[in-house]
Design a protein around this nucleic acid. Structure first.
Lengths: 83, 83
DNA sequence: CTATTTTATGGCTGTACAGCCATAAAGTCA
DNA sequence: TGACTTTATGGCTGTACAGCCATAAAATAG
């Protein structure tokens, strides 16, 4: 169920889906890391101006982490040299 | 050479490394997507307040994409249910 | 359907980013 | 070593986020 995220909207969708799968409310996610419920809402809906710090706090609250990788490549044939 | 990113600093490091590997300057990366060279610099150095939109524009400029996944799990044993 | 919980919006405000410009600092190369 | 390129910093400014509070709207439970 891996997703390739290239926009704020896509990121918000993933966050929302994971949060719901864990049965946690926006308020609960936020309170642990001092993020306003309204802020969590806007992020999940793809607010493009969200601050990076806020995103990482939410990822932490949901026990998630980020990975960056090259686009449009077959991972099986990925060469180290490209990095 | 996959990296698990949990902070702005870590993200900045990856961006910087990839950009250098591609022999592109901060100015070049920025100009294509209207990002100030100084902004690229601060992001690479881990500015926590960077806007999400800006991050995605840089990832696009470097032909990168993001993935979100659960923390601290052996990917070989990852269960779909956790998502 | 009603009551309750959860999520989406909006106002207000302090703070800070990002663009733009300039320049110092650091790195590169002949 | 000197000339040139690249990166780091800082000032100035317009814009907008995020916290806080309140509330409407939507979803869920009973």
């Amino acid at each position: 169920m891996k997703q390739f995220i290239r926009s704020s909207k896509a990121l918000g969708s993933v966050i929302k889906r994971v949060r719901k799968a864990k049965n946690i409310g926006q308020t609960a996610v936020g309170s642990a890391f001092k993020i306003d419920q309204g802020t969590v809402s806007s992020i999940e809906n793809g607010a493009p101006g969200t601050r990076l710090e806020t995103v990482f706090r939410i990822l932490a609250a949901l026990d998630l982490e980020m990975i960056i990788q090259p686009r449009k490549v077959d991972k099986k044939n990925l060469k180290k040299e490209e990095w």
